[in-house]
Write a protein that binds this DNA or RNA. Structure first.
Length: 200
DNA sequence: TCTACGATCTTT
DNA sequence: AAGATCGTAGAT
């Protein structure tokens, strides 16, 4: 029984609000289904860590477009980073998917991970992109239509923890320290968990 | 064109 | 603590 797709409208608000509500929802691509456990908001207009901080470029074009679409980019020459575009058309903002709990397609995930033994801990955005098999060719594709990459309604997170975002040392202090990273409390599928603290 | 570097992960 | 690995963005 596949959950219903989150409507386009779901994404048409501030990235921080969308980030909070994405925890517990599901991402599906082919056989692979993941439950979102950790996210980061890249907000508009005042966010010096945002890829859109310097305006429109070919890479970040999907972020400037309508909400409810994927923004995928290559990081450090090897990691495919999946974001979900938020806010309104013309407002460059998105939510980075940092960690997920695998719920379907374990076999495919394991193969993509090189057949390594042990538990499949999808902690960190590079691993999420790898498990889903996404790449930059999916950047700009809608998330609210059947057949491609889909975001489905899951079981919402009850308790949330927050902390500063990871890997943005270039940002201004007020954004560097802003607690715009959110995760499901006590989930094992969370990266840098020690830097998180309880939210209200 | 040229260069520096990154919303990372793994191994040492 | 450092290497892998390459597209992007800004400078030349």
């Amino acid at each position: 029984m596949p959950g219903r797709l989150l409507p386009c409208q779901f994404y048409a608000r501030d990235a921080l609000d969308v980030a909070r509500d994405l925890l517990g929802q599901e991402i599906w691509h082919g056989e692979v289904g993941l439950r979102i456990t950790e996210v980061e908001a890249y907000r508009y207009p005042d966010d010096s860590a945002n890829h859109c901080r310097a305006g429109l470029t070919p890479r970040n074009a999907p972020m400037w477009g309508p909400p409810g679409r994927a923004y995928v980019y290559l990081c450090y020459g090897m990691h495919q980073m999946l974001n979900l575009v938020t806010n309104g058309d013309g407002q460059g903002a998105a939510v980075l998917i940092r960690s997920c709990e695998p719920i379907a397609g374990h076999r495919v995930i394991r193969r993509r991970r090189g057949g390594k033994e042990g538990s499949v801990l999808l902690t960190g955005p590079g691993k999420v992109g790898q498990a889903l098999g996404v790449d930059t060719s999916l950047s700009g594709h809608p998330l609210y239509r059947r057949g491609g990459i889909e975001v489905r309604e899951g079981t919402q997170a009850a308790e949330v923890v927050v902390g500063p975002r990871i890997g943005i040392g270039y940002a201004e202090p007020e954004h560097l320290h802003a607690e715009w990273r959110l995760a499901i409390a006590d989930s094992p599928w969370v990266s840098h968990a020690r830097q998180l603290r309880g939210a209200q």
